[in-house]
Design a protein around this nucleic acid. Sequence first.
RNA 1: CGGGGCGUGGCUCAGCCCGGUUAGAGCGCUGCGUUCGGGACGCAGAGGUCGGCGGUUCAAUUCCGCCCGCCCCGACCA
Length: 479
Amino acid sequence: MAEEKLPTRSEDFAEWYNQIVLKAEMADYAPVRGCMVVRPYGWTLWENIQAALDRRFKETGHVNAAFPLFIPMSFLEKEKEHVEGFSPELAVVTIGGGEKLEEPLIVRPTSETIIGYMYSKWIQSYRDLPVLINQWGNVVRWELRTKLFLRTLEFYWQEGHTAHATEEEAREETLRMLGVYADFAIHEAAVPVIQGVKSQTEKFAGAVMSTTIEAMMGDTRALQSGTSHYLGQNFARAFDIQFLDRNNTLQHCYTTSWGLSTRFIGAIIMTHGDDQGLILPPRLAPIQVVIVPIFKAEAETAAVLETVARIQSELKAAGIRVKVDDRTEVTPGFKYNDWEMRGVPLRMEVGPKDIEKQSVALARRDIPGREGKSFVPQTGLAATVTDMLADIQKSLLDRATAFRDSHIHQPKDYAELIEVVSNGWAYAWWCESAECEARIKEETKASSRCIPLDQDEGHGRCIVCGKDAKRKGYFAKAY
RNA sequence: CGGGGCGUGGCUCAGCCCGGUUAGAGCGCUGCGUUCGGGACGCAGAGGUCGGCGGUUCAAUUCCGCCCGCCCCGACCA
């Protein structure tokens, strides 16, 4: 059961986050260091995320499949950058069935290699292309510093892997899926994101180009919330993914990969939550409306519960995810706080006065206190609730966007950049050299987040070295 | 992996410095009763190998060593 108070976000954002995850019963610590248990409330949220993404994947022509958890160690070694990037964080299986294995197996940290191996078997001709496969699964990366949802040894995600006949097509796919992520983040999760390209130092191990959606959390730190990579022919060469083109010439494929993980749950929590707890976007919330029945005397109980049951089935029939909190051992006031902490977007109170007036009380989670409370007639309630949920969804996005935009600054010089990244993002001309990027990171702890796709025309002078810069980039402290 | 903090009923912690009868508190949990439109209350209960191993001692939750785990801050990452 919930304790009464959370630390406020301003006094201790990290602790606020930890407690919210635990108290809202999203996840819990597992007995293995760095591992988490995703509890039913958190997993239902993930299932809703999955459904929203999966629908988009199917709409863009992708199909799902499942590849093995174990990958031969030698596979990873076939792509130089890939193995360098991942070897420090691999879990390796050396014993199976009591016998020492001839070749160690790694627990997949990502599946480019084993999927590449399979693609080389499956692809012969340009007629076989493109191959557009996604898989939902779990992966393991042996991280040193972990945090629930944001970075755990094992996490759940989807990884799309596609193979194409041309560079152009593969680059298009990379950006198409980045767009899918952005659309999902903005329209389902109400998390405003910036689409951009990762710097060479920040890109995925083995990619030619990595793209990202970057979101701003409530403490202004940035969170990479999804990534899409153009892999060029790197993995095709490593795994001999080849095809005969129309001219009977043998060519290597161009491949992409893209992923979004349970980390996104962390993004939702840290984007929308307030000092009362979680606020979940209606479109993804496991429970959209919680009904709290209220009765003083026993004589009122039956009438209230009857009305509540009727309303519940009306809302259900309208496709609204609704829960009735009929616990008798806690007071209504306790329930209000409890469900607010769990982020349910809309609360409905039904009591004796409502029976009399044929009304109900509605309280919006995004507007605390009196202001967010309204009394509406029971007739047409499903429509009223549906509209209000849509309005909450919109107001969450508007609020998060306004917050983000008010914390993005365009520093005029390096001194000002140092200042702004202490509580926000810097958007500045950058020569794109690793040296300038490294200097910013060393001196401010802020890393380059991305070079946004959406760029102003023209050019300027690099905020660090003053050399000519063609594009602007975002710099921020990040998770 | 470096620095810091912490491990005592389910949770948060006191006790330990200065070793000594049956180890406490608040919250939570169970039962009964009164409550119920913004975190209710009374009464009666249940619940502990004091993180683990080893050492010192007549005696260790308390002193010493090692180990394990968690949290926070730094180097790496979705």
